[in-house]
Design a protein around this nucleic acid. Structure first.
Lengths: 198, 198, 198, 198
DNA sequence: CATGAATGAGTATTCATTCAT
DNA sequence: CATGAATGAATACTCATTCAT
């Protein structure tokens, strides 16, 4: 049970970290501030995490584990391909809505290091890379199921980015997220292109 | 000609800065490292730029000025709307090709500050924001000319991001950029959606 | 007792700071030099003081708190006005004797900022200002009690400065401080003017 | 005449330096700012002055030469001793009025270095020291002429400081300088002490 | 003589990490 | 295991001074 306790404490710290980062952003995040926010000593953090980078990766890790589970659920379900696509859009938007601060900030911050360095040595980079590969390969199958013949990998990536782009559009241009409306919009755009908006 | 010399040196420093950032990313960029990389003293940098932020903005500024000019040229030309769309895709891809490292990295880094803090006080934030507003409003007109009735602003933003997404896809997945092929792909995707790939 | 240890260390640093400043002056005082002089790391200073200004204010703060207490004791006592004046002179000279280097230097340095910029935003300036106002208003009452009818504020200020002037005279002209003699001298000068020396 | 030209240029630079310092204070004074303010190159300053300290001493030097001349005129005149004292007070207040920013600031800044280090190695220190010695010894003679028997040196120094103290009182407490009134006040205070204000 | 670009040591401050308790 | 004081390398920026032109 000691291990279990340890795991619980780790999770508690991660929860606090998410809370802090969502409220204050990644850039100002320091180990001291986190320790104080958790009400524990700085040194204690290092009993649960190797270093800051390790902690920061784990901050998003289980969120992504969660999304992976949900994606698998959708893709493994009984819906037809288009229904699955619609479901994934909804699920993606809901996911971003629930983790919006954390994930947008994170996604961008990681990309700094990693777009530039696909073979990046940072833990961030490796982590994002794994997630992307996982997501893209799953989504390629869906596209195959929809009869898409060409460029499935690129299209899968563009799908992944589209979700984020809608979210960042809303933030940048002060538009409220409306899951129903935006899911429909995104479906139309992604499936039929802009000509659907004529 | 003294002024000219000064301008040349400023440009030389900016060139070195671009080189360094392309190779190492924005996040680790420091004035000391740049000075060493340029083979000059730290203080010298401050003879040419007010401060780090000033330098970093100028690193992208003239690149963006260039793209603005080219966009205006296309949009003000005699082509019909679809031709203009195609031209903008080509121009965008070419632009990214020529400045790929710098601009993808930059776009992402700025988004960290600015998605999270849309009213960011950083020069970076203000600069990207201006560019985005400029681009989106121009592109909205083009979409209007193409008979797009709804959500033109969102669609304009998605276009802007699509170019970047194609580039980052190529980088992340080790695919070579082929302007002809990718311009056609992007046109199909953007105009007709994924169903064009069936 | 941990808090006590912290307080002790803070006091130890302040003591070292006073020692350094007394030996080398305020103008050349830097955090690096102090750290080296204390035999600790630069960062450690910042565990005990918010910043340089904070430290520099605290360097004099408790000394001045001490003098305020003593002044209140004298003024609130049972002596008649002239006796109180004599006591304050003695107390002032003793105080300067015990803190001579630090306080003379400090008083002058602050005046630079504050004569020139009376509404100075520096913590130094605010601190000296408060002290001056406090002292002058207290001393005005004493002068009133002595039957002084005009220009009490100016005379109070001149008293405050006289103490410092005697000390700096001794330092500049290599004269030994003799509390009895100098207190009498100052009393005669302040109360009767130079004609008392005829 | 070359030497003359050189002297003129030196004087012109000193005038500009005084102008700048009076307006902006000593603390922010830099060689670059002065050069720009003079409309000449930084390096040129070093053709006329050995270094910054040299320049800063010369900034006050001829002002003090002037006051020395005036003091000699008064002391060498036909007035009786008390009249001479009155004249010196007026002359001192007028002098401070005309050079108030420069001299108060300077006097204080120098004292930082020099109260602390009577044997200071700085040019500032040496210069102030010389001036003080000069003034005090002259004024001692005046006091002797007034029949002052004891402590003439100290009293001379206190006189010197009194002038400055009245000026700084006016600045700190927002009181307007009134030469007639303040000269009388200072005479009363210095000659008869505070009891004259009963 | 005049220039002003270049220098580099120096400033205050931050923060991930360590380690003795 | 928990602590948190201590560390010191790193950061952006300044400025008196030099020297090649």
């Amino acid at each position: 049970m000691v291990l279990n306790m340890e795991k619980q404490k780790r999770q508690a710290i991660l929860g606090k970290a998410r809370e802090w980062i969502s409220a204050n952003g990644f850039s100002n995040f320091t180990m001291s501030k986190l320790a104080k926010f958790c009400g524990i000593a700085k040194g204690t953090l290092y009993n649960y995490f190797d270093n800051k980078e390790d902690l920061m990766v784990k901050v998003v890790e289980d969120r992504v584990v969660e999304i992976h589970r949900e994606v698998d659920e959708i893709l493994g379900g009984a819906q037809d391909a288009e229904e699955k696509l619609r479901s994934m859009i909804r699920q993606g938007l809901e996911f971003y809505r629930d983790n919006v601060d954390l994930l947008i900030v994170y996604a961008n911050e990681v990309k700094i290091a990693d777009c530039k360095f696909p073979s990046s040595a940072t833990a961030h980079g490796r982590f994002l890379r794994e997630h992307l590969d996982w997501f893209v390969s799953r989504f390629e199958q869906l596209l195959a199921g929809m009869g898409i013949k060409r460029e499935r990998r690129l299209l899968a990536y563009l799908f992944h980015q589209s979700l984020e782009n809608v979210m960042s559009f809303n933030m940048l241009f002060g538009r409220e997220l409306d899951i129903d409306r935006d899911a429909n919009l995104l479906y139309s755009f992604y499936f039929h292109g802009v000509e659907a908006f004529q």
